[in-house]
Design a protein around this nucleic acid. Sequence first.
DNA 1: GTCTATAGTTTGATAGAC
DNA 2: GTCTATCAAACTATAGAC
Lengths: 204, 204
Amino acid sequence: MIPTQTKRKTKEDILELSGSLFAQFGYDGVSMRDVAFATGITPATLYHHFSDKEHLYLEVVEHEFREKSAELTIILNGTDSPWIRMERFIRNLVQIVAIDGNFLRLMQWVRLDSDEVRQNKLAEHVFKDLFVAVRDLVAELDSGYDPYMAAMSVFGIVLFSFEAGPVRKLMPGHSPDHDNPDVWANHVIDLLRIGLRKPEDNKC
Amino acid sequence: MIPTQTKRKTKEDILELSGSLFAQFGYDGVSMRDVAFATGITPATLYHHFSDKEHLYLEVVEHEFREKSAELTIILNGTDSPWIRMERFIRNLVQIVAIDGNFLRLMQWVRLDSDEVRQNKLAEHVFKDLFVAVRDLVAELDSGYDPYMAAMSVFGIVLFSFEAGPVRKLMPGHSPDHDNPDVWANHVIDLLRIGLRKPEDNKC
DNA sequence: GTCTATAGTTTGATAGAC
DNA sequence: GTCTATCAAACTATAGAC
């Protein structure tokens, strides 16, 4: 029998596992011991792969974000009409944050437990491209709004419900329908189709 | 000279000061020592006022939220027409989160670093009333959307830009105008005035 | 590359004097 | 009510053997 290496942990295995931990408990809520024991190595070995906790965290965030934003960027830069691309983008983003609860949590943590240095690095080097793609698509829609603000509004309207998480489900009026990602996507698309349409289509 | 008691710390003084600390650094980022020394007392004295860290935190969140939501609830339950109330609510909420950066950060922390028990307590006992008031106002607008989802959308579109904080200001397209709360309030109101109007007003 | 062992801090919480 | 003094546990990071 050929000896396999399934037990040997690659750097990517460490990133995936610690990504899940950081998403659940944040930077301060996860110790290097936790990461080490979760991956089946000792803390000293972990320090062999990553110079310190800060660099481990930065690599985790970049890894998770690039993984999710790759498909979104393809949709945004596609050749369909602007509205079709926006609709596909919204459906895809809702799917991502609905299925993988960890991704959105990690992004929420970054905004709270990172100092300005870390936020600068990530904004410039990791987050910027996706925002620009959304902003440019919004501009193509020609709705008359400031594209920067309109892009923020799109992210807000899509993401907030999922960021609210457990608290949201405890608010009065919640029904099982509201746990269905498609229902949310349809709602957001309906709202934005009206709110973001061209001014001349609004005249009577 | 009559002896003053300005140096004596009341329970409310402790809540205000530790509220600022928890908003900046989160539950795990603030030690009981930090709170004690910031208020000029010793840890042992702090434990005389609050049974443990958990109860201090819960009282802080409730104190901060009730302080801000009081004026909002008055607007929402007022006698103006639904649209006027919605507009005033949005302007007021934007002012609150723009002026007091700590408030929104504290609410973001709660969603991330609280277990289900703590979230249940706060959702039921603190957050619920404001959400219901917004949901009912949205229902009055009669736009045809599910009021629960539409209310979430309103919160998302208003709050997300401010929750994004420092990262937002690093995104391409940012201009000094975007640091002005009134500009944001006007943008949100414009978008929602179109998106949330009655269906029959949409027919040509 | 992986381990054991540990240095040096900081944490939440308490005991007991005044 | 406020203090000094203290505890057991957990933390990041490193040194040095194999």
